Simulated scan of single mutants.
Amino acid sequence: MILAGDIGGTKTNLALYDWTTERVDPVRMESFHSADYKSLEDILVEFLTPPKPPTPLDAIDEGDEGEKPDEPPPEPVKLTAACFGIAGPVIENRSRTTNLPWVIDGSSIAKQFDIPLVQLLNDLEATAYGILWLRPDEVEVLNLGNPPKKRQALALIAAGTGLGEGILFWDGKSYRPMPSEGGHADFAPNNDYEIELLRYLRGQYLHVSYERVLSGPGLHAIYEFIRDTKKNEPTWLAEKIKAGIPAAEIAEAGLKGQADIAKQALDLFASIYGAEAGNLALKALSLDGVYVAGGIAPKLIQKMKDGTFMKAFTNKGRYKRLLSTIPVKVVMNQETGLLGAASVAAALAAYTPAP
């Protein structure tokens, strides 16, 4: 049995798999609210402790309801390997999480839970492994493209709570993910309107990264920029945003065409998202494809498919034709990071490289 985990600032997903060489569904999976725990170890104790079996009613003596027949304790789960994708940099199999007061150490976990092999990965690195196992029905195609016959690189970009980026290079036998913190690179405006957005954000932040724009909070920031410059916010939407989750309320109003300001925010968000995905494709020369993952793109799939994203993706001057040949797909499976971590754990258990 192997253990896989996807560790985020909001939630931690854990799953057990009986995985050898082919993808399988988890034997058991649970989700935990990360902030409710002091450490990953506390969650692992709860997840890995076998539940006590129920006592049959007929085994309890009617005259002594308080006593139960002795039963041997359940056998603990025996793990051969574990892998965790973590929202934060991983250095020497150790990570200080970005949005939690946790320090996660692979060797300490291995010792405490008697797991022979424990590997920590950056969360986007785990997602990168996961896309190699996706089925065709788990992606939405934005651009079919025309990749070369000889294998080239893949790229991954994922907007959610933050913005993650990654590259998968072909080593002659398989794709190898490379961890990256490219989402924190400088935001580069592409037109006068985006220059105004940058000026607006620079009034709030010393450093304006792509993550400040391409994330849940980033969509809200774009909305506030439009609100403060165009003064076109309806009162009903302002109240919904104040009471709910801002990015979700903006997305809903924009997708339903209920407010011009929300539609404009989605237009700008999708355009910048496409532009940065195209930037990543050029930097990696990812001719085999670009995958758009994270929590936002699936929720905005209607917007992602209307042409705004791809227009910005290919708007690279003399390289427009090249960018048009690159396949672009949206990852619809929200457990892709967990899937990737499971594939690495399975490979560790088998003492063979991950695919």
Rank of each mutant, 00 (worst) to 15 (best):
G254S: 08
A349K: 14
E335L: 04
G5S: 05
A354L: 05
L339P: 06
P74Y: 09
P298V: 10
P26G: 15
L57D: 14
G294Y: 12
E92W: 06
A259S: 00
W19R: 11
Y210K: 07
I296F: 14
G182E: 08
D267L: 01
S95F: 08
E67I: 06
E75R: 01
Q334W: 01
D36M: 11
P179F: 14
Y291W: 11
R176E: 13
I115K: 09
S215W: 10
D123I: 05
L198A: 04
R23V: 14
P54H: 01
E335S: 02
D171Q: 04
P101L: 01
K263S: 12
G289S: 09
G166W: 07
I326R: 05
D64S: 05
T21V: 10
I91W: 11
R318Y: 04
D306K: 13
I195A: 12
T98V: 13
A350H: 12
S271Y: 06
A270R: 00
P136E: 03
L121R: 11
Q152H: 11
E233M: 04
R96Q: 15
T352G: 05
I104T: 03
T20W: 13
G289N: 14
A153L: 00
T98Y: 06
Q258G: 05
A262P: 00
G172C: 00
K283V: 12
A81S: 14
L197T: 03
D123S: 03
D137I: 07
Q152F: 00
I245M: 08
H207N: 04
A293L: 02
V213M: 04
I43G: 04
A350S: 15
M332S: 08
R94N: 01
V90E: 07
L16R: 00
E62G: 03
T49Q: 07
A251V: 07
T235D: 15
K316Y: 02
I115P: 09
A275M: 07
G244L: 01
G66P: 01
